[in-house]
Design a protein around this nucleic acid. Structure first.
Length: 155
DNA sequence: GCCAACGTTGGC
DNA sequence: GCCAACGTTGGC
């Protein structure tokens, strides 16, 4: 089993939105970066752990724990001319971008980025590396454990 | 709003 | 295939 950190802008989809969704599950759409796409396509498995991260907001940080709930399938927004994720080069026969479903598992506490930067266990986390902007990044088991423990501590 | 860092595009 | 120009991300 693998672990991931996935960034979402809370103005678009917040962790609370996922908790409120039917079956607490949403499609993760709008990934338009090949490296992030390839993680979803090639490495993610149902049941993998997900740190749900809020980016581009007042207090960025991990907003809750989720899990991967489906295999990869074509991201519908790439075909939608009205979507700002529309990609004219994608066709249903030859889709470029994919989604996976993600289910919320546990919320109720928040770990700010500023605090993550103080945790020695997270020193090597991809998210925290200089210049890192990938929307989906791998998380090690040790990093996962440290974040989960800290979240639990805060409840 | 600024700006560093990174990704993508397209001319050559 | 190189690389300059441009666009985007995302913290601050």
């Amino acid at each position: 089993m693998a672990y991931w950190l996935m960034k979402s802008e809370p103005d678009e989809v917040s962790f609370d939105d996922v908790l409120a969704a039917p079956q607490k599950t949403v499609a993760w759409f709008g990934v338009r970066n090949y490296q992030a796409r390839n993680f979803m396509r090639d490495q993610m498995k149902v049941g993998d752990g997900v740190l749900f991260y809020h980016s581009s907001c007042a207090v960025p940080g991990v907003a809750g724990i989720a899990e991967v709930a489906s295999g990869p399938y074509p991201d519908a927004s790439q075909f939608d001319k009205k979507s700002h994720y529309y990609d004219p080069k994608a066709t249903p026969e030859q889709p470029r971008w994919i989604s996976v479903d993600v289910t919320a598992v546990e919320g109720g506490s928040y770990l700010p980025l500023s605090e993550m930067r103080t945790m020695p266990e997270l020193e090597d986390m991809v998210l925290l590396q200089k210049g890192s902007r990938l929307s989906i990044t791998p998380v090690t088991a040790a990093q996962w454990k440290a974040v989960a423990a800290r979240l639990k501590q805060k409840v």
